[in-house]
Design a protein around this nucleic acid. Structure first.
Length: 504
RNA sequence: GGGUCGUUAACUCAGUCGGUAGAGUAUCUGCCUUUUAAGCAGAGAGUCGUUGGUUCGAGUCCAACACGACCCA
């Protein structure tokens, strides 16, 4: 067979040779007693060629990342999840038999080592191995030690390899975990309880988006993967849980891009007796404090451009943004026909039923959005595009809603919740009437949600934050695929080359 | 969906005017007991994304397709 397998064949030969020498290739008996990071700053710094006083014995395990052999001695670098350290192996220390076995080791093998600490001539802290052990034999070569893995497609498809060889990638995903933990802590500290609501829903509600459809065999019914948890979380407000949040996946059956993955992680939270203004306050505090805890500063840069996350953040109504940033005269914005005409002139395609609110929102997206680099709350969204938000008491054409933009991207969306069941029913019905043409978006009246509101939902405000986009911002990642461990990829083309292990 | 660019050894990349495939790392063999992108000497490794076409001859030119990146809708 050939091609792929010069390396596989060589390593299998070595593996067989090791087995002949009585070495277990996939042993489960080596127990490390130390993480490598624990050894690094131990006590007083050693001088070059000095051994650690007391000669304490350390026992570590990890992956062989580099190997430098010298006949009867060798250095290899060993990486565990905490750090890397160099291990020095000498024939006269480990013995002839072990040294012969060591000769069959490869870069990429997972191994254990036990020994004392010393510093080499050149000043690198190292373990002088007294004993070494094979833990798991690697059959495939790792990418090059110097350039690493730069092909983004391979990095996404074989994330395991990326994580082995790309420190930045490991750092990004550690930061992601940290960010999510900080958000959980932030909300828990403020009395929010974390809940899980259905991901498989009979009616996909809570957002205008195309859902994935699936089927329950035993029930003989179609189900949809959720596009948002919103309507379930608000049912919990009805139930008396006054502060709830959920961090979990949503699914949208739409295009892929550097900012869109079919499944993505959303934080949604709801607070009874709060308004959208409280939510803006909370959001400012949450994101800026997460940033400070991650980066020790609120002045960060994203893709080479500075971003200042220090509160307070700018707040503009949509009309103000269109006037101040897009330069549209405020008198024009007051005239519905003029707004629709402006949108048409700019090439925005509007459905026949679309009103000025929709047109205004489209103009905003076209002319303003990407210019909002430092965090900016945009408020007073048209009621027409905000079916779940409470109307403003002075101006019922707009809602008590905001969206947060950073680096030109929508990061969060929040509003005072509509809790009038009759108004909600009317808006759903209007929405259904207007979306009739798009068969992929299934607008159906969620009568149970209306029924829940009829029991009475406290006044409340809620918000959704796109976690992936927030992580992109805080890890300076250009693509959503850089912050999702296993982003969706089209299948690799299956060629005639068959892996030998599958060909047996 | 449209446009541009990319796909060559395990990895990172060259490949001129169309003339039979190159480097570094990695691997293998030999030497080497403090190296660290170890060193020295030698060797092996390729369906040039896939399928067609043009040509005496295609990694190179043309077309379609696949996958990816970027831009646009």
């Amino acid at each position: 067979m050939g091609t792929d397998n010069q390396f596989l064949a060589q390593r299998r030969e070595k593996a067989a040779a090791l087995a002949d020498l009585g070495v277990k290739l996939y042993a489960n008996s080596f127990q490390p007693r130390h993480r490598i990071a624990e050894l690094l700053p131990s006590g007083e710094p050693l001088q070059p060629e000095e051994k650690e006083a007391g000669g304490a014995v350390y026992r570590v395990a990890g992956r062989v990342m580099a190997m430098r052999k010298f006949g009867k001695a060798a250095f290899f670098s060993l990486a565990d999840s905490s750090a890397r350290i160099q291990v020095y192996v000498r024939k006269d220390t480990v013995g002839e038999e072990q040294f012969a076995i060591f000769g069959k080791w490869d870069i990429g093998d997972i191994v254990g080592a036990e020994g004392t600490l010393f510093k080499t001539k050149t000043g690198e802290l190292s373990i002088h191995a007294m004993a070494i052990a094979m833990i798991s034999k690697s059959l495939r070569p790792l990418p090059e030690k110097w350039h690493g893995l730069t092909d983004v497609e391979t990095r996404y498809r074989r994330r395991y390899v990326d994580l082995i060889v790309t420190p930045e990638s490991r750092a990004t995903f550690r930061t992601r975990v940290q960010i999510i933990k900080l958000i959980r802590d932030f909300l828990s500290d403020r009395g929010f309880m974390e809940v899980e609501t259905p991901m498989m829903q009979p009616l996909p509600g809570g957002a205008t988006a195309k859902p994935f459809k699936t089927h329950h065999n035993a029930l003989g019914m179609d189900l949809y993967l959720r596009v948002a948890p919103e309507l379930y979380l608000k049912r919990l407000l009805v139930g008396g849980f006054e502060r709830v949040f959920e961090i979990n996946r949503n699914f949208r059956n739409e295009g892929l891009s550097t900012r869109h993955n079919p499944e993505f992680t959303m934080l949604e939270f709801y607070q009874a007796y709060a308004t959208y203004e409280d939510m803006m306050e909370l959001t400012e505090q949450m994101i800026s404090s997460v940033c400070r805890q991650v980066h020790a500063t609120m002045q960060i840069s994203y893709q080479g451009n500075p971003v200042n996350l220090a509160p307070p953040w700018r707040r503009l109504t949509m009309d103000q943004a269109l006037t101040e940033i897009a330069g549209i005269e405020s008198s024009l914005l007051a005239d519905d026909q003029q707004v629709i005409e402006m949108a048409r002139q700019r090439g925005i395609k509007l459905e026949a039923q679309a009103g000025a609110g929709k047109a205004k929102t489209e103009l905003f997206e076209l002319l303003v959005e990407e210019q909002l680099i430092d965090p900016t709350f945009i408020t007073s969204y048209p009621t027409e595009v905000s079916p779940l938000a409470r109307r403003n008491e002075e101006n019922p054409a707009v809602t008590d809603r905001f969206e947060l933009f950073i680096t030109g991207r929508e990061i969060a969306n929040g509003f005072s919740e509509l809790n009038d069941p009759d108004d909600q029913r009317h808006r759903f019905e209007k929405q259904i009437a207007e979306r009739g043409e798009d068969e992929e978006i299934h607008p159906e009246l969620d009568t149970d949600y209306i029924r829940a509101l009829e029991y009475g939902m406290p006044s409340a405000a809620g918000e959704g934050i796109g976690i992936d986009r927030l992580v992109m911002l805080l890890t300076d990642s250009p693509s959503i695929r850089d912050v999702i461990l296993f982003p969706h990829m089209k299948p690799e083309e299956r060629t005639a080359v068959v892996d030998p292990e599958l060909d047996a």
